[in-house]
Amino acid sequence: MTGKGIRIEGLKKRYGSGDTAVDALTNVNMQVSPGEVVGLIGPSGSGKTTLLKCLGAVIEPTAGRMILGDEIIYEDGWKVNDLRALRRDRIGFIFQAPYLIPFLDVTDNVALLPMLAGKPNAEARSRAIELFKALDVEHRARAMPSQLSGGEQQRVAIARGLVNHPPVILADEPTAPLDSERALAVIRILNNMARKFETAIIVVTHDEKIIPTFKRIYNIRDGVTYEEAGEGRAFT
């Protein structure tokens, strides 16, 4: 580990207590370096979503350790006071559906995050436009989300995940609604962005089309992660 990216050690999550307790995560260990895109796969009910929620500081794990960059953010309890600020500034999210705010135009959908972090409007919008250029949606900058195609919406959602330059991005089945060609395009973009912004990206997926593109895969079964080597197939 170079001091960036994200590392998870012995993470556990138990729902409920006593006889009704359910161990959703029993032993999760992961490490994703800056610039790397890894896949997180597993059958339904294996704990993928629970892990994503723990990584996203949405729910609190029961035990273990999470290190983001150089900082321990969780070790038998949160080590940061403001989880919202943590999510806003240091974790990027890309959802299964783009979930763009329908009443904001494309630029403001992306610029909202730096604005929430206190950046001036002009700087926030400039950051958004810069990402749009990289993602080839610059020409749609003033459009409303309803005017975009599915692929364009997902690229804008990627821009939103990247705009605050977070050290880690959590992508929850980002290619689910897309056909093969567009799904692969999204993964290509994520790889390019990971390299460009030195971001660690974890992609939760069921999508057989994109699994061969990952060099490393974490397979989660019954709350335990198993690291596997991926095919790392080149994009066509």
């Binding site: 949405v58 919202r84 806003r88 979930y99 995050l113 929430l116 972090a117 939103r160």
Partner: peptide, 16 residues
Amino acid sequence: IREIAVLKLIGTKNRT
């Protein structure tokens, strides 16, 4: 509701 959930997830303050 979905937009509010997204806003909360990306770190929007309650007062916003």
